Simulated assay, not measured.
Amino acid sequence: MDLEVMDEALHTERKESGKRGRKPGRKAGPEKVDMKAKLERSRQSARECRARKKLRYQYLEELVADREKAVIQLRGEIERYKIWADEIDQGRFPEEASEILKEFGIIKPE
Rank of each mutant, 00 (worst) to 15 (best):
M1E: 11
V5R: 07
V5H: 00
M6K: 14
M6H: 08
D7E: 15
D7I: 10
E8I: 04
H11D: 10
T12N: 09
T12S: 14
E13G: 15
R14C: 12
E16M: 07
S17H: 13
G18D: 11
R20W: 09
R20A: 11
R22G: 01
K23A: 06
G25E: 05
R26W: 06
R26T: 14
K27G: 01
G29E: 12
E31P: 00
E31W: 01
K32M: 09
V33K: 15
V33Y: 00
D34K: 11
M35C: 09
K36L: 15
A37K: 06
A37V: 10
K38G: 02
E40D: 10
E40P: 00
E40G: 01
R41Q: 12
R41G: 12
R43D: 14
R43P: 07
Q44E: 08
S45C: 07
A46S: 05
A46R: 03
R47G: 04
E48V: 05
R50Q: 10
R50K: 12
A51S: 05
L55P: 05
R56P: 00
Y57P: 08
Q58D: 14
Q58G: 07
L60H: 08
E61Y: 02
E62R: 08
E62M: 03
E62N: 07
E62T: 04
E62D: 09
A65R: 09
A65I: 09
A65L: 09
D66Q: 12
K69F: 10
K69V: 13
A70P: 13
A70W: 05
I72E: 10
R75V: 09
G76L: 02
E77V: 12
I78L: 11
Y81R: 14
I83E: 15
W84Y: 00
W84V: 00
A85M: 06
A85N: 07
E87P: 05
E87K: 07
I88R: 02
D89A: 14
D89N: 12
Q90I: 03
G91F: 03
R92D: 14
P94E: 01
E95T: 08
E95I: 08
A97G: 03
L101W: 11
K102P: 04
K102V: 12
E103Y: 15
E103A: 06
F104R: 15
G105H: 01
I106D: 10
I106T: 09
I106R: 07
I107D: 00
P109Y: 12
E110Y: 11
